[in-house]
């Protein structure tokens, strides 16, 4: 009986995390259309509800009532399971994300490793979708995306190794606690090259502009999900945006001090700003990174495919390797306020 209550309690917590997450996805699409609209001197959606605020729901209902078309020669089972395979890891990784001090579903010691494992699974949905649809454009999109994700995972993994060295733990809460202090105490400063590499690889991992050749509209229509419609397409969409929020959340936890306020530990400002709950600081920082995603999309032209590969292998990976050596020396020397 006690185990059952425990189980129900865990399920409730999962619901409390996933509910707001899916709502954020809905409003991230709204924010994206609005912000890109403003950047391009347009209004963005403004018809459904006040200020167009009900637009995401209108889109969801439209997609739900549309037919899921199965291509004639598609592999039925894999075609239908591919969207779920891309959504599952995007949601599962949230299990170890600390939203505030102690606000985490499971505080496991190998948290960082778990996140890395989960994000590396997202590629299955993409390749299977591309293959199962039995369409040339899908296949091309899937191949591009799979090669890109596998390449940038290496740079991202190396960047995370740097965080791991600096924090001395793989526990996500432990990583945030080792950054306790004002804004210059956070890891973005001593790990600046790794932070930049992480963020570039994060954008590339989620197949977002300027690295969105996987769905490059001008060449291969919509890439791996060109044959998807209705709810199946909506699930891919959900997974992509959940992954964006996840990468932003990880950036906040690993480099931007998680739930700490930028003035934490300072004489007067510290206690004042600490009155704001840590969850709010976390959300504000995540929103900042999400804005970067949208800003990139509105301002950068798409990379050419060979340039993406060159950037990943010949620029980002060497930078991380060099900085890992520098970081090791900084830790040995007890450099600055970070490694004493």
């Amino acid at each position: 009986m006690a185990e059952l209550i425990e189980l129900v309690w865990i399920l409730t917590k999962i619901g409390v995390i996933l509910g707001p997450l899916i709502l954020s996805v809905a409003y991230l699409t709204y924010a994206e259309r609005k912000i890109i609209g403003w950047i391009q001197n347009r209004n963005g959606p403004n018809r459904v509800g006040p200020l167009g605020l009900l637009q995401p729901f209108a889109d969801v209902f439209k997609l739900m009532f549309k037919e899921v078309v199965l291509p004639a020669n598609a592999n039925r089972f894999l075609f239908l399971i591919a969207p779920l395979l891309s959504l599952m890891p995007a949601l599962a990784a949230w299990a170890v994300i600390p939203f505030g001090a102690g606000l985490v579903l499971t505080d496991i010691n190998a948290g960082l490793l778990y996140v890395l494992a989960m994000t590396s699974l997202g590629v299955y949905g993409v390749i299977l979708a591309g293959w199962a649809a039995n369409s040339k454009y899908s296949m091309l999109g899937a191949m591009r995306s799979a090669a890109q994700i596998v390449s940038y995972e290496i740079a991202m993994g190396f960047a995370l190794v740097g965080v791991l060295m600096a924090a001395g733990t793989m526990n996500m809460s432990g990583i945030v606690q080792s950054q306790a202090g004002p804004i210059w105490n956070w890891f973005w400063l001593p790990l600046l090259p790794l932070f930049v590499v992480y963020w570039i690889s994060g954008v590339a991992e989620t197949n977002r502009a300027p690295f969105d050749v996987a769905e490059g509209e001008s060449e291969i229509v919509a890439g791996f999900h060109v044959e998807y419609s209705g709810v199946a397409f909506a699930v891919f969409f959900l997974a992509e945006y959940a992954n964006m929020i996840l990468i932003s959340g990880l950036a906040v936890i690993l480099f931007m001090g998680g739930w700490y306020s930028p003035f934490h530990g300072l004489p007067v400002l510290g206690p004042v700003f600490d009155l704001v709950p840590g969850l709010v600081w976390f959300v504000i920082k995540v929103a900042g990174f999400l804005y970067l995603y949208l800003w990139f999309r509105a301002t950068f032209p798409r990379y050419r495919y060979d340039q993406i590969m060159r950037l990943g292998w010949k620029v980002l990976i060497p930078v991380t390797v060099v900085w890992l050596v520098v970081l090791a020396l900084m830790i040995l020397a007890g450099f600055g306020p970070w490694f004493d």
């Binding site: 590396s120 390749i127 596998v150």
Partner: peptide
């Protein structure tokens, strides 16, 4: 053995099998 378990997923599922699938497709 949490480390081994997660590394199995990370290395074999996340990397090796993706390349396998690539070739098979």
């Amino acid at each position: 053995a949490e480390f081994l378990g997660i590394v199995l997923v990370l290395v074999y599922v996340g990397a090796v099998m993706v390349l396998f699938l690539f070739v098979v497709m």
